[in-house]
């Protein structure tokens, strides 16, 4: 098996057009041209869109999780319907629905324009995914915790917010960080909504730059910036998970 790998690598080295690869993917002049826009506009927008979608999605997810665990039937039904629907659809469909479908149908403009529509669409999808995570976290808190709180005279709402949720959130921080990594990548879908030079996120920025100068180096740069954001986050998740494992 090693022999095969050696042969493949050797062939790649011998036959690869290295000058061409260097020129098209690792072109230093192109890289220099991309700065500072790739950071001050593109990366900034990617991070901004992610954080906004995550924050709004988290609030929605918490509401959905509580609804799914509610004793009130219609709330449960709504939460289940919502979660299954938006986890079942491609995020792209939801984005197009919010960005074009609903504005066309009701003849209205989304607050915040195209970026607003993108953030809203992504929040809707993120809420569906994170709701299940949060629900699982709430259910992972031992029932005895609720019983102890109730026996001290706390109402069920008070018990949820002061005793159960603080513990549930510790449990779900690693999986929620994972959701955020997925969300970072999903912001690349914003391009379907149309952009202006100042609202481009990383993928759109790189793609437009590539088409303009007919060179693929911007893709390499975008990939490296994505990794610079996501790798520390996944490293953080691993650390958090290890710490959680130790404390239990």
């Amino acid at each position: 098996m090693y022999a095969l790998a050696v042969v493949v690598v050797a062939l790649a080295i011998l036959l690869g057009d290295w000058e061409r690869i260097r020129f098209n993917f690792f072109n230093v002049e192109v890289m220099a041209d991309m700065f500072p826009g790739v950071l001050t506009v593109a990366a900034r927008n990617t991070i901004l869109y992610t954080l906004m979608s995550f924050a709004i999605g988290l609030v929605g997810a918490l509401a959905l999780a509580l609804m799914k665990l509610s004793t009130i039937g219609p709330y449960r039904a709504f939460a289940i319907g919502y979660i299954e629907l938006f986890r079942g659809l491609p995020a792209l469909i939801t984005l197009i629905l919010i960005g074009f479908g609903i504005p066309i149908a009701f003849d209205l403009r989304m607050p915040g324009g195209r970026v607003g529509a993108g953030v809203l669409g992504l929040s809707i999808v993120a809420a569906a995914y994170m709701a299940e995570t949060i629900r699982a976290g709430i259910e992972a808190v031992p029932w005895g915790q609720s019983e102890a709180a109730r026996s001290l005279g706390m109402s069920s709402n008070r018990t949820m917010f002061t005793i159960v949720l603080p513990q549930a959130f510790r449990i779900v921080i690693p999986p929620l960080t994972n959701e955020m990594v997925l969300l970072i990548k999903d912001t690349s879908l914003f391009f379907v909504l149309g952009t202006t030079p100042l609202t481009k996120e990383l993928t759109k920025f790189a793609r437009d730059f590539m088409v303009e100068i007919r060179n693929a180096t911007p893709l390499t740069v975008a990939a490296l910036v994505y990794l610079a954001i996501t790798l520390p986050l996944t490293w953080l998740v691993r650390r958090l998970e290890r710490r959680a494992a130790v404390s239990r």
């Binding site: 031992p142 915790q145 513990q167």
Partner: peptide
């Protein structure tokens, strides 16, 4: 309670 059920946080 048998299991104490102190609030760990």
């Amino acid at each position: 309670f048998q299991q104490f059920n102190l609030f760990p946080h």
